[in-house]
Design a protein around this nucleic acid. Sequence first.
DNA 1: CTTATATCAGGTACACTGATATTC
DNA 2: CGAATATCAGTGAACCTGATATAA
Lengths: 154, 154
Amino acid sequence: MIKPNELEPLPEPGQGKRGKDGYLGYLLRQAASIYRNRVDHALRDLSLTQPQFSVMTMLNAYPGHSSADLARLALLTPQTMSVIVSNLIKQQYIVRHAHPVHGRIQVLQLTESGQQMLSTAKQRVYAIDNEMTRSLSETDEAIIKNWLSQMARS
Amino acid sequence: MIKPNELEPLPEPGQGKRGKDGYLGYLLRQAASIYRNRVDHALRDLSLTQPQFSVMTMLNAYPGHSSADLARLALLTPQTMSVIVSNLIKQQYIVRHAHPVHGRIQVLQLTESGQQMLSTAKQRVYAIDNEMTRSLSETDEAIIKNWLSQMARS
DNA sequence: CTTATATCAGGTACACTGATATTC
DNA sequence: CGAATATCAGTGAACCTGATATAA
């Protein structure tokens, strides 16, 4: 029986030290997975998943965009985004409207209850975020943010 | 129609500046999602998923452990890990053996072809990792690694 | 005709809960 | 008995590919 702490950061014992490469991706995956676990857990009783929260956040920041727009933003296929959007519509957190000019595009918007839900969810998620940065100095945080957003842009 | 670069890091325009909190988690999610996308794409023609790769990596570093052990390590339920393990057994990348002492535990091990597959997959994943760190100085990389592993430990 | 949007159909891996049998 | 392991069953969100209809 293994307790998690017994073998954490997984330095790959039998393979010789690998100082730089490979290691950072593993850590990123691990950290993101733990972050995701916490977010999922914090949103569970709201019946909100992390991708749903993410879509609502995007829609709040950039209202009036379509499912295809969101798919591009999140680097997902239109079909996948369509499922997430459908689930949000089912929960009545967002609504579809016909595009004023373009006859085919369905423009999305947060509903009243969607905004309330997002606000509640944000409080919990931001609490987790704050916990994450608590031990960081200003400069270190800037370095990390810089690196992460550089990755996100590429 | 939106091109991704038009509205990237998502500074949440209508809400006032939020300098520290909330932002880092969003970036972490975004970066991890992009990293995951790349890894998935790199492994797709190997018919290997990222969780499967992760489990094989764990098993390679710490051979002879059980599905329950891996579940604890990856912070997943035993049932979830059981599914991932089953899929790997179906592909004949790992095998089950009875525990020498404990009659109930099924000890897991990479097969020959599992090791070959892992080796191939690692090359691709590590190439992505190297790409990620290319722009970083030694000290910045250390800061980031430090932060990530601190998160993974907590 | 080509491109973009939306959506239907089908499939799979992954994640959960709940229940059960077995073993220590 | 309780605790840990494994596994059955069912559910659901999320991802994919492929095909189709419609609008610019």
